[in-house]
Amino acid sequence: MNATNHGACLLAVLLLAGCAEFPVIARRPSPPPPLPPATVIEAPPPRKAPRATPITPKTINIVATCKRTEEDGFREDAQMDVRANEVRALKWKLWVSRRGSCEFNLSDFRQVAATPHIELQAIDGSQCKLLVWQDPRRVTLAHARCEKHCTPGIYEQAWPVLFDPNNGKCAEVR
C-alpha cells in the first residue's frame, strides 16, 4: 500500500466512523461552582422600650380633692387622705364622657404595700389594684386591672387622677 492508498483508507475509515452510531454516554453535569460565602447581615437587636424611672420611695402626706370636668366630657371626683404612706380615706369616681364611669372606695380595698409606692388590692379576689406614688410635680392615683369597677367598654379610657402635692387640688396636666 502506498501512502496515497493509505491516506484514502484512513479517510474512508474516518468517514464511516462518523456515520456509525455510538452509544451516548450520559455525562453527569459538573457541580455548579461554589457560591461565594453569604454575607450575613445581622438585624440590629430589638430596641427595648426605655425603662421607666424607678419610683423613688417617698413619704406621702396629702389630703387631696380633685373635682373637674374636661372639655371632652371626662369628669373626675376624687378625695384621698394619706398620712405617712397609709391611706386613711379614698373615694374616687370618674366618668368617660356620657359612656360610663368607674368607682373606687377604700372599703373595697386593703393596703398591701407602702413603698416604693402605695398599693391597694381589691378584697373581692379580683386582680384590681390602686396605686399611689409621688414625683416632684404631682401625686398620682392610678388603677390597674380594674375593669369590674367600671361600666363595660370604657376601661381603656379611664385615666389616673393627678393631685398637686403642694395644695392637694387637681394637678395641671402638661
Rank of each mutant, 00 (worst) to 15 (best):
N5C: 10
L16H: 01
V132L: 14
E156N: 02
V173C: 06
A26N: 15
Q111K: 04
H117E: 15
A43E: 00
Q79Y: 13
L11G: 15
H6A: 15
V24S: 11
A144S: 09
Q111N: 06
T56N: 13
V87A: 07
F163L: 13
T4M: 08
L131Y: 09
F74N: 14
S101Y: 09
K148D: 09
C19F: 12
W133G: 03
K58H: 10
T115P: 00
V24G: 08
A3R: 05
C102H: 01
I55N: 02
P152V: 04
A114V: 15
A43K: 00
I60Q: 04
V24Q: 08
A52D: 14
D124F: 00
T151N: 08
D77L: 09
W159N: 14
T59P: 03
T140S: 12
N61W: 01
H6F: 12
S30G: 12
P50V: 11
A17E: 08
E103F: 02
L10P: 08
A158I: 10
I62R: 05
R174H: 13
I62V: 10
K58P: 01
G153A: 14
N167W: 12
A84I: 11
N2H: 03
S97C: 02
M80H: 04
P37M: 08
Q79T: 15
A142M: 01
R83D: 14
A17I: 05
T69A: 15
D164R: 01
R98Y: 00
P136H: 09
T59R: 11
S126N: 11
C128K: 00
L131H: 11
A89V: 01
A12Q: 14
L90K: 02
T59G: 04
A38R: 14
P34M: 06
K58W: 02
M1I: 08
K91Y: 01
R27S: 06
E86M: 09
S107D: 15
P116M: 05
R137D: 15
E156P: 00
A8Y: 00
N85H: 03
V82N: 04
V87C: 07
A20P: 09
H149I: 10
P33G: 04
T4P: 04
K91Q: 06
I118H: 04
G153W: 10
D108G: 08
K169C: 02
L11E: 15
R68W: 08
R75F: 09
R28W: 00
V96R: 03
C19K: 10
S126W: 05
H149C: 10
L14R: 14
V24P: 01
L90P: 02
I62T: 07
A84P: 09
R75D: 13
P136N: 13
L15D: 15
D81W: 00
G168V: 09
P33T: 09
E71Y: 01
K58Q: 11
Q111R: 06
I55V: 10
E71V: 07
T4W: 06
C146D: 04
F22W: 10
N105P: 06
A43G: 00
E76T: 12
L90D: 03
A3T: 03
P152F: 05
D164E: 05
V161Q: 06
D77M: 08
T4D: 12
A171Y: 07
V63N: 12
Y155N: 13
R145D: 13
L106A: 12
T53F: 09
C128N: 02
F163D: 13
V40T: 10
P29G: 06
Q157F: 08
I118Y: 04
G100I: 03
P37T: 08
P46V: 03
Q134D: 12
P50C: 06
V87G: 08
